[in-house]
Simulated assay, not measured.
Amino acid sequence: MTTTPTTQRPIAEYRSQVPALQAKAYFNYGGQGPMAQSVLEAIQRSFQQVQQLGPFSGEVNDWINRETDQTRQAIAQELHVDAATITLTENVSIGCNIALWGMDWRIGDHLLLSDCEHPGIIATAQEIARRFGVEVTTCPLMKTLNAGDPVAVLAQHLRPETRMVVLSHILWNTGQVLPLTEMVAACHSYSNSVPIRVLVDAAQSVGVLPLNLTTVKADFYAFTGHKWWCGPEGVGGLYVRPGALASLHPTFIGWRGITTDTKGKPTGWKPDGRRFEIATSANPLLAGLRAAIALHHEWGTTQERYQQIQTLSRQLWQRLSELPGVTCLRTTAPYAGLVSFQLDSKAHRQLVQFLESRQIYLRTIADPDCVRACVHYFTLESELDQLVQAIAEFKPA
């Protein structure tokens, strides 16, 4: 049963605004969400505004300040935090790098990752280990997909030397939704000489889960606007918990993050999340992200959209589970929009190519070797039919 939204905007009306959804069955929201026409127009208007005002002038500068303030506030409202805790970035990776490189690492420190983190995180951790003599280990959360307690597994891998734990709120490969609040609490309550900081890769959770980061209490929460929010690529953010701000130091530094005296000489850092911002960005994209967020609210509340994602992903999981030769990674219905599955033939890349030839878009995952389909709240049941039927017809070479 589908969720009845509090507003009257029909799904068909929403989809009619999105060029990428015309004559296509799209299941790649976890990679990049398609933008609505209203989002594209907001970006175009902003680029025109900049050119008409300057583009380098006092008036443009005032406009940029308003745009950044409004965007910071729009993001903060979605995450239920104060706008001062938000650093505007370009994407998840930059947010994660701010947190990872901003720590005051020492030889012998321990950095703990889950075994389901993105290669970009793993590569960054490896370089930190090389430069600073930090030990990097992994926590086996993949095995808890269908059984086991992620909180207990994490707690078993904490050490007195652990300085940071990196987790994904929703695991990008299996779709598992981690009990993040409890896992953060386990890290913060661990008896240690220095606090264990928790960095969260939120690539697959922002725009999906109803979030209140004030209660979650993660130290750093890195996200982007171009996936489930369906905004433009090039705009993201990092939430820094107020209690963790003093422990994080800027690494890449520019005029946006510093304070100056009357002669323009640097005197220190901005007092809030702005200290991690660097220099000139594509400011017209900010209007696009705000337009994308506002458009989602026209359909329903965050909770209603999440419930619809759950309903549709459950339907897809059920139908895939019934297909001969197909095994879903989860043995029970997923809690979010990522549905990962395997073919007995393991011809995953061939399947993705076959589906794309039919205008059906999803992707392969390397570890575990599988195919991932992403279901949004405005996915149509007819698209689920189209996907399942095409998989049933696929014959590997």
Rank of each mutant, 00 (worst) to 15 (best):
L171C: 13
K395E: 15
E127S: 10
L112W: 00
L384P: 02
I98A: 02
F276D: 04
I11D: 13
P10F: 07
I170T: 00
T71D: 11
V352Y: 02
H376A: 15
I121G: 03
H348F: 04
L145T: 00
R66M: 09
T379V: 02
V198K: 03
Y335R: 14
Y14M: 14
T6R: 13
H157G: 05
T85L: 11
T2N: 10
D261L: 08
Q70S: 15
L362G: 04
I293R: 02
F354K: 06
T214D: 13
L312R: 03
D104G: 14
N146H: 11
I121M: 13
L380E: 12
E117P: 09
T259H: 05
K265D: 15
I253P: 01
A83Y: 07
M35T: 09
N173C: 12
G207R: 00
T301L: 09
D82I: 01
V165L: 06
C187M: 08
G207C: 00
L355S: 09
L380N: 07
R66G: 09
G231S: 08
P55V: 06
I128P: 01
E90A: 14
L285T: 11
K346F: 13
A291W: 03
I293F: 05
L141R: 00
L362N: 12
W101H: 15
L362K: 08
C328T: 05
Y306R: 05
F223Q: 00
E383I: 08
C187E: 08
Q156F: 04
Q52G: 14
G54A: 09
A123G: 13
Q315D: 11
V136Q: 07
F220Q: 00
W228C: 03
V326N: 00
G31I: 10
W63G: 05
I107G: 10
I309R: 00
V39R: 01
A333Y: 07
K24R: 15
G120P: 08
D367I: 11
T311S: 11
D149R: 08
T364G: 09
L316I: 10
P140C: 10
T267F: 03
T364M: 04
F252L: 15
T68W: 07
I253H: 03
L111W: 02
L158S: 11
Q350T: 03
D62P: 07
L113Q: 02
D369F: 14
Q52E: 15
E182W: 05
L343G: 00
G234H: 04
E381I: 10
